[in-house]
């Protein structure tokens, strides 16, 4: 059974690594659309998958956040990837498999997955 005592121990362990946060100009931001349209289309497991992949790969300078409706409900679930100094990339009709590839190719290796972007889908 998980206990609050265990949480205290985790806090102490986490505290030791806390000071090594990168400054915000280096942080890659991922935002997932979490309005009704996004949630109905499956945004929750997509969000969970992003969080999971980032934790699993111990990516220190990547954050995930939620946003409202991006205005293209028919293409949900949608996520935007914002790499500092690069143009925003909008990924649509996401699946957990697509998320895994976006993390590896785009977030880790800097190469956007063009075929999953809004541009590729609407062409």
């Amino acid at each position: 059974m998980k206990t609050l005592e265990e949480l205290m121990a985790l806090r102490d362990a986490a505290k030791a690594n806390l000071t090594t946060r990168e400054d915000s100009s280096e942080v890659t931001r991922i935002v997932v659309g979490m309005a009704t349209c996004g949630i109905a289309a499956g945004a929750r497991p997509i969000m969970a998958k992003f969080v999971d992949e980032i934790a699993k790969r111990n990516l220190q300078n990547v954050t995930v956040a939620q946003t409202g409706c991006i205005g293209m409900c028919q293409y949900e679930p949608i996520a935007e990837v914002l790499v500092p100094g690069k143009e925003k990339v909008t990924y649509v009709q996401l699946t957990e498999e697509k998320v895994a590839k976006i993390i590896v190719d785009h977030v880790v290796n800097g190469k956007p997955v063009v075929e999953y972007t809004i541009g590729a889908i609407t062409e």
């Binding site: 985790l10 806090r11 806390l18 980032i54 111990n58």
Partner: peptide, 13 residues
């Protein structure tokens, strides 16, 4: 309990 350790730390999540 957590103080300045954020709730979104992977180990805490």
């Amino acid at each position: 309990i957590l103080g300045d350790v954020p709730l979104n730390e992977p180990s805490i999540v």
